[in-house]
């Protein structure tokens, strides 16, 4: 059974004349252990797809199954639990919280998940170690470079060892050297943690570098 199954997923924003069809029937499977790179022009629906996969939004029609669970039927509480346990998310803008140390950023999913305080430090240390930032644990975002900030965000995404890692243009705000370092990191984590990665990117070179499969989106559909 594939980890992710998308069947005829449609997503429309707005109503009537203002209606925008962001996804027009997406059917796709992602197998366990895959590293899928999603490419496509701006506005083609990549982020919309990602938000649906992340359980942050619901499809207008169609079904999304992750790990056998139908997200379109899940209650809000089930979706929150899904976001906490099944996925990790990385964004283009890092979305680190100002004024908190790297260790505190990484601990956030553990706080939300009610992980006993005694178990948190070890998990945080392991995650920071996995992204090579053990020595930056007490630094706040303002004291970190862009590449380091994104690596903290990656550590935050994997601290609970989720089976599915979702990254929406994680290299969009990084120079090429840092971009390569981050995708290499994602690739390494996939191997080390045995997780599945879906990554959106603009750059075919990066996709070639790490992806096991490339998917191209065009106008709300998967291009053949």
């Amino acid at each position: 059974m594939p980890l992710v199954e998308l069947r005829d997923v449609e997503k429309r924003y707005g109503r009537g004349a203002a209606e925008v069809a962001a996804l027009r029937g997406v059917t796709m499977d992602v197998e366990r252990g895959e590293f899928v790179a999603v490419l496509g022009r701006s506005g083609s629906g990549k982020s919309t797809l990602m938000n649906l996969l992340a359980g942050l939004d619901r499809p207008t029609s169609g079904t999304i199954r992750v790990d056998g669970r139908d997200l379109s039927q899940a209650t809000p509480a089930e979706l929150a639990a899904y976001r906490a346990r099944t996925i990790g998310v990385v964004f283009q803008q890092f979305h680190l919280l100002p004024g908190r140390t790297a260790a505190e950023q990484v601990a956030l999913p553990l706080v939300l998940d009610e992980t006993p305080p005694g178990e948190r430090a070890a998990l945080v240390a392991a995650a920071l170690d996995a992204v090579g930032l053990s020595r930056r644990a007490t630094h706040v975002p303002a004291e970190l470079s862009g590449g380091e900030q994104q690596r903290v965000a990656v550590a935050r995404a994997v601290v609970r060892k989720p089976p599915l890692l979702l990254c929406d243009e994680p290299t969009g705000n990084l120079d090429s050297v840092n971009a390569e370092a981050v995708v290499d990191l994602l690739s390494g984590l996939r191997a080390r943690l045995g997780c599945t990665v879906v990554m959106i990117t603009h750059e075919p070179d990066l996709a070639d570098r790490v992806a096991s499969r490339r998917v191209r989106m065009e106008d709300g559909r998967i291009a053949p």
Partner: peptide, 16 residues
């Protein structure tokens, strides 16, 4: 607002 959005993306419920 952004922080709230992030917390929700990390698994926070509306109740949290």
């Amino acid at each position: 607002t952004k922080e709230i959005g992030l917390l929700k993306a990390l698994g926070a419920t509306d109740g949290d």
